[in-house]
Design a protein around this nucleic acid. Structure first.
Lengths: 165, 165
DNA sequence: CTTGGAATGTCAACAAAGCTGACTTAATAT
DNA sequence: ATATTAAGTCAGCTTTGTTGACATTCCAAG
């Protein structure tokens, strides 16, 4: 434990501590995606579909370009995912009113239902982890994750909250 | 909504808080892998090679079976990665002394050098994040990540440390 | 009004990294 | 002896990413 701050105790910055953090990220991310993945495996969708639906649910009416920036993939890759979701009636794509080049994406009823199902599974694990660790640990968790992001991603991460009305 | 219990404050368990945590994991993981990925993109290797080398570096002499369990992939998938690493002289595979069916994996000089390069890049980001967040936040970060793991993975996560001699 | 550039969509081809299933070889365990 | 285990291999498939080329639509600047 990093205690006794004579001046500063930097033991938490040793290579060994960092390696453990790296491994913790690896193993935890597996858990993080495991539950939605299990659900998705039973249908014709994958993690990419989940991600798209998550951010459409989060920012209804978002544009394709915005989603591209958030997800950090090429439009061809996103388009493939989006096309199947639209074809299957889970996502709706509406031509923009001010700028008719843009497409605004929203979840249909069915899309929202699936998103909720996936989200519920993922949140259940998250909730259990949060509850087990306690509020102070959660605050630290969030701090470290934020510091780990690329600056662009950190901006987008905050932008999502700010766009909430 | 989980609102103000009498004693405990459970505001950190609201769906909104959990969603933010989920998004933080997503964006942070991207940052987490970004630096090694950039290095790997310049050679014929990918993230899978990095992961294999990481855990071989961590547990020198580990067996293929053990690595399979840690990485959570099929032997066919791991074998493809391992084969190229062995062919390129980054990993050495030695027949076991007690059980000759087993292959014990170790990094060669060149393998260790590449692993160090990738690891340095990843640790640099981790160190910056840790330093920015502080030791208490780091402790919380670790606690939440650990609580998020599948029990099997949590065992393995600890086993790696215990196997350190 | 025309034209340049941005936003979107689409086609084709390809690569990384996962998967299943079937099978071999060698060595250990029963 | 036989069954099981560890490792490796072959073939084929899926998901999800990538480039590059190209068409369409539409806003905005000249």
């Amino acid at each position: 434990m990093a205690e006794m701050r004579g001046g500063e105790n930097l033991l938490f910055l040793t290579d060994e501590q960092l390696r453990q953090g790296i491994e913790a990220m690896f193993f935890a991310y597996r858990g993080f995606t495991a539950d939605p993945d299990r659900i998705l495996a039973t249908m014709a969708y994958g993690r990419a579909h989940h991600r798209a639906m998550h951010f459409i649910a989060r920012s209804p009416g978002t544009t394709v370009n915005n989603l591209l920036a958030i997800l950090g993939v090429t439009k061809q890759s996103l388009n493939r995912v989006l096309r199947t979701l639209i074809e299957d009636g889970l996502v709706e794509s509406c031509v923009g009113s001010t700028d008719k080049r843009e497409r605004h994406l929203t979840l249909t009823e069915a899309g929202a239902a699936l998103e909720r199902k996936l989200s519920d599974a993922q949140r259940a694990r998250m909730r259990a982890a949060y509850r087990a660790a306690g509020p102070q640990a959660v605050a630290g968790f969030r701090q470290v994750l934020e510091a780990m992001m690329d600056p662009d991603m950190r901006r987008r991460y905050h932008a999502i909250r700010e766009s909430e009305t």
